[in-house]
């Protein structure tokens, strides 16, 4: 092989560079998120926990389409309590702290859903309380 002296050290440096995140972070991985359980003590969600973990975004999309497009604004009942379908109407009624619930995982996974550009977190809504 020609230029062995340059190619092999070059390759080694390249591989080290590419894998550097592993060497730098691998051993001190960020602690997995611990989203806050509903402060109100509710135990049951509209779907099993495992389903929600993987598919809450899909459920929200389905709700959006059925509420807005198909006029199926039916209520969801969980443990005798009824909720209107929707992020603000249902989810946030129990998971009332967006920062301690939604954000924990979203920050960890580095995803930036734009729900809150329009939807009001309970905190935001309370900042300009409506009295009517």
């Amino acid at each position: 092989m020609y230029n062995k002296g340059t190619i092999i050290p070059g390759l080694v440096i390249f591989v080290l560079l590419v894998t550097s995140p592993i060497w730098l972070n691998g051993l001190k991985a960020a602690t997995p998120p611990k989203p806050e359980l509903p402060p109100g003590g509710e135990k049951k969600c509209v779907m099993p926990k495992e389903y929600m973990r993987d598919n809450h975004m899909k459920l929200l999309d389905d709700w959006r389409d059925s509420v807005l497009r198909d006029e199926e604004r039916v209520l969801v009942t969980v443990e005798g309590k009824t909720y209107r379908k929707g992020l603000q109407m249902a989810c946030m009624q129990c998971h009332s702290n967006k920062e301690k619930f939604c954000d924990t995982c979203h920050t960890y996974a580095d995803v930036n859903p734009y729900c809150w550009d329009c939807h009001l977190t309970p905190k935001e809504a309370a900042s300009k309380e409506d009295t009517h």
């Binding site: 603000q88 109407m89 734009y114 329009c118 009001l120 309370a126 300009k128 309380e129 009517h132």
Partner: peptide
């Protein structure tokens, strides 16, 4: 520019 929030309805965002 929203004076009071109705918590049952969203706001909108720029560009909508």
């Amino acid at each position: 520019y929203i004076k009071k929030y109705n918590p049952d309805f969203p706001s909108r965002m720029r560009g909508v």
